[in-house]
């Protein structure tokens, strides 16, 4: 990160802000398209999320009576900034130039921020549905966060590093973690689904129960930015899972022209994130929503213990690996 021009390009154009914006909207489109095709429908046209975004930017912004306007305006921006920052540490073409020891933990915490913002928005909305939605969001956070963290930390334990880029490098040398830790992969996918509040874990925004949860009172650009935040976190989440479990963008052998290798790495990144998206969309289509108490039950009984078992296996494997 010595060259400031390169840094600016990296952050704002590729693979930063601009590319991420386009890719997130494309992801949202694909998500809807896959779902509609599975239901034997045609589905939306490709520009649909973009049109939605622009339209919402152009809509009137209504302040619900008695809310703090500044926080209501700022909170979605904070959430968007957090997930966009998290994206910078995930490897896209080769390793992230911003990588440092421990960036995995930073990314995980940045990814948790949108949920907190949603809770804040729901609580501030002064609408009973929003408040219930906010409480549900925070309850759900407590349930899925532990297994999700544990599942994402097992690759780190095995690779012996807390940097995403180094975990990817480790996989380049050895084997993808999806083969070494299948349980962790499944738990990570479920946790990601819960984090993004998609069916079966769309409890906080359950449309048929509490209208739209924390989103109920959002209008205009606030809604647009929150929508974009969720789309971006979908990209970041799948990129993170792809990096930690599917070997990230790196290929195990070297290709001579550096630009060709870059393109292939980038294509790999696209393919792997899309594969993760396909799995996530299938989960979304194949399930109905569960209740918060059932989620509590399932989350702590099965998912958390599965991730603990995975951690145990990793520790045993590490022990054998070191002494073998």
């Amino acid at each position: 990160m010595t060259d400031p021009v390169f840094g600016l390009i990296y952050i704002f154009i590729f693979p930063g802000f601009l590319f991420l914006f386009i890719y997130a909207l494309f992801f949202a489109f694909l998500d809807r398209k896959i779902a509609s095709r599975m239901q034997q429908r045609v589905g939306p046209p490709f520009f649909q999320p973009f049109a939605d975004f622009i339209k919402m930017l152009g809509k009137e912004v209504i302040d619900p009576a008695g809310v703090d306007r500044v926080i209501f305006d700022a909170a979605p921006l904070v959430a968007l900034a957090a997930v966009m920052t998290a994206y910078l540490y995930v490897p896209i073409i080769g390793n992230s130039p911003l990588a440092f020891q421990g960036d995995l933990v930073v990314v995980l915490y940045l990814l948790s921020l949108p949920t907190l913002v949603l809770f804040l928005l729901g609580w501030l909305s002064r609408n009973i549905f929003s408040a219930i939605g906010g409480i549900r969001a925070i309850t759900q956070l407590f349930i899925y966060e532990v297994p999700f963290f544990l599942a994402l930390l097992t690759p780190a334990l095995m690779a012996g590093t807390w940097s995403i880029s180094e975990i990817v490098l480790w996989q380049q040398k050895n084997l993808w973690f999806v083969f070494l830790q299948p349980i962790g992969f499944i738990v990570a996918l479920i946790g990601l689904q819960a984090k993004l509040e998609r069916t079966p874990f769309d409890i906080p925004e359950a449309e048929t129960e509490i209208v739209a949860g924390p989103w109920t009172e959002l209008t205009g650009r606030r809604l647009a930015i929150m929508d974009l935040t969720i789309d971006v976190s979908l990209v970041v989440g799948s990129a993170l899972v792809a990096a930690l479990f599917l070997g990230g963008p790196l290929i195990p052998w070297a290709i001579t022209p550096a630009w060709l290798e870059g393109i292939i790495c980038f294509l790999l990144f696209l393919i792997k994130t899309l594969a993760v998206l396909l799995i996530l969309s299938s989960i979304k289509v194949a399930t109905g929503r569960i209740r918060i108490d059932q989620l509590n039950d399932i989350g702590w009984k099965y998912i958390a213990s599965a991730s603990l078992v995975q951690v145990g296996i990793v520790l045993v494997m590490n022990y054998l690996w070191v002494y073998a």
Binding site: Q39, Q40, P200, A206, T208, G288
Partner: peptide, 16 residues
């Protein structure tokens, strides 16, 4: 009923 539990796929299929 499927829609109410968020199971939109069954919703679409039955209505189809």
């Amino acid at each position: 009923a499927a829609h109410l539990i968020g199971f939109n796929t069954l919703f679409m299929w039955t209505w189809r």
